[in-house]
Design a protein around this nucleic acid. Sequence first.
DNA 1: GTAGGGTTAG
Length: 560
Amino acid sequence: MQWNAELALTHAAHHLKRCSTPNQLQSWYALLLKTNTTQDCFLINQYITACSNHRIIDTAIFAFSQIVNPNAFVYNALIGAFLTCFRPLQALRHYTLMLRSAVPPTSYTFPPVIKSCKVLQFPGVGQCVHAQVLRNGFGSHLHLQTTMVDFYSSLGMRAEARKLFDEMPDRDGFAWSTMISTHVRAGDFDSARRVFDEMPHKNTAASNTMIHGYAEAGDVNSAEALFNAMLERDVISWTTMIYCYCKQEMYLQALEIFEEMKSTGTTPDNTTMATVISACAHLGTLGKGKEMHMYIMQAELDIDVYIASALIDMYAKCGVMERALVVFFKLQEKNLFCWSSVIDGLAYNGYAEEALAMFDKMEKEKIEPTHVIFLSVLAACAHAGLVEEGKRRFSIMTSRYGILPEIEHYGCMVDLLSRVGLLEEAQVLISSMRMQPNSVIWGALLGGCKLHKNLEIAQIAVDRLMILEPDNSGYYTLLVNMFGEANRWNEVARIRGIIKERRVEKALPGSSWIEVRKKMHQFAASDNYHPSSKQIYQILDMLDSQLKVLGHAAQLDLVV
DNA sequence: GTAGGGTTAG
């Protein structure tokens, strides 16, 4: 009977470790209680691992607390469980507990411990653990050496990583890839290439890392060359190439190679889809974006925070905020990126109040905002002209969250103040900045001056802009128009003289595009290139006259 | 048990 029960348990352990629901885990522990085997280190080890796979740490902690004499396997399982359940500090605590209980660590103890030091960014602790690795006789353990190289690499201690790698008597594919990655992380692509060239049998991972390096360096040609030369390509190779194109804003190429990937039989995964949806967002191609969404559903890929953020952003940028919100509200777990995308999407689509309400909701869920999210918040205030609200949020950013404003935040605030005509206040803010104002700042101020016809401050802004962007004719043109409007023709002549003297090139006109029925239509200001431009202008004129009837005068005075 | 690819803003 006893023997049968044990056999059943062992069998259950095998089964439950792979596929089990939280409920099954519970009944498993009940079985352990019933059979008096809660002290069996082998079974508890399996049990803790299963709990960890389901991210249920509490039950694992309980099972551990019941063991009188946990062995190294049990400790290893628990330390690993803490790490996978995002509690690295607890992982380290139980490691020290293990040492104090005089249970000698095994080679399996260290990877999760070192990884915990890595995610916690504890260089000192990591070095202590390294010393213990050596003291326990694992100095020439290939696996642990690689883990240590990665640790030093992640904390930016490249010299230590390099030294360790150089001293390794044997190196496998993991070791080489880690070293290449070390240089890529540091932005030292030449060193990455040198290590890659030195590597005897280049595997797919190493090549992928190298392609990623090229992508970061903006070297599309080298990335393509290496990619094309690869004998075997996996999902990561393809995804990295897609990322490479995205990084260079070559979104159409990104979508093209995605199709190629599918046609050659490689199945995209979550990472691929997140990248490719982001490409659709940048292109503003709703049709393609929807196709990608459909693919995810068909392939039954899990909509994780990466894909969700990308989808929300894509739908928002394509102007279908309703769809973005559906994705957002369906999400079980939301991280900062999801919130950021939805808040920015609302702001971008003109729902300023809703964006702010969404931000407040995020605060209530105890998600710590970052400086990025405040850009969306302030942009929402700026678009809706919510001055007091904007000022309040701007000050909360620092007082409540300790986030110092970056130049982009100042840009939003200057834009906000200038738009509503608080030009002096905007100037005061600019002079209070802890960094040199750039052309965006002065441009925002100038925009406000234009709107509120303040020539004096406009002159100040343009003087600065002339220094910062001497080749940009747009600012001069704007100033010329402003003075012209005020009938100050002497000034007009003076500035035209400067333009001539400096031979400022006429800036390339900006353009925008929109997708209608899967076809792209591109427009520049006042152009006549579109086949239907005649009808389009007719409609614009009609809209304009309707607006006038409603007492809304368009500002066409920019166009001379 | 160790390596390689992802989402927002600018």
